[in-house]
């Protein structure tokens, strides 16, 4: 008696068996994650290093690739725009990202991944990339898509302020904060 399909073709039978095992394994692994057994979403411990690395590399490449297509306007460097950027930074950014000599809000260290200080942001990202990070935010990090709240012009101003921030001494930065706060009080 001849074996029935697919056992009359050993290669095909093996391939089908392999495919079925791979699908079964994927479903089992998926179930482990979806059921919460295999992954702790708590923020009290950092990602395992390999996971942190993979997510970070994905973010860097995702931001870089999309920023290239954004056709972002050049940085603004005039005084009025930078002061406007400083006011936006004071209102929306300083609590999580700190500044020259200025610590973040105490609860921010409880966030993992934790928001970085930005004095080296210009070394890590291009202007277009920083605009994209601010405008579009970053999933699963707590970074909002500020483009939903701010105009593109304001995004440009706050990014430009971040770019000049490393040239401010803590004393100069404090002076800017005070004058910005005074202006915000006066506007109320």
């Amino acid at each position: 008696m001849r074996p029935r399909w697919p056992f009359d073709r050993p290669l095909l039978a093996g391939w089908l068996f392999g495919l079925a095992s791979a699908v079964a394994l994927a479903v089992a692994v998926g179930a482990l994650f979806l059921s919460g057994i295999a992954y702790d979403t708590g923020a009290d411990r950092p990602h395992p290093k390999a996971v942190a690395w993979a997510i970070h590399v994905t973010m860097i490449n995702s931001v870089g690739r999309r920023a290239e297509k954004d056709d972002a306007p050049p940085p603004v460097r005039d005084r009025a725009s930078l002061l406007s950027g400083a006011a936006l930074y004071e209102r929306y950014c300083v609590a999580c990202h700190g500044g020259p000599g200025q610590a973040r809000a105490p609860w921010v260290a409880a966030m993992l991944p934790t928001p970085p200080y930005l004095l080296d942001a210009r070394g890590r990202w291009s202007h277009a990339e920083l605009r994209r990070l601010v405008r579009n935010g970053v999933k699963m990090t707590g970074m909002p898509a500020w483009g939903e709240v701010l105009s593109e012009r304001e995004v440009g101003e706050v990014v430009s302020f971040v770019e000049i921030m490393p040239s401010l001494t803590p004393a100069a930065y404090s002076r800017i904060r005070r004058s910005v706060a005074a202006a915000q009080r006066a506007a109320k």
Binding site: R45, T114, P116, Y117, L119, D120, G123
Partner: peptide
């Protein structure tokens, strides 16, 4: 290691063994 990660020390310092700690401030 966890404290250094939480305090974002790597934003400004290169620190061996800490993820993303490649700052040059």
């Amino acid at each position: 290691e966890t404290v250094i990660t939480r305090m974002a020390c790597g934003s400004c310092h290169v620190i061996p063994g800490i993820e993303e700690a490649d700052g040059h401030v």
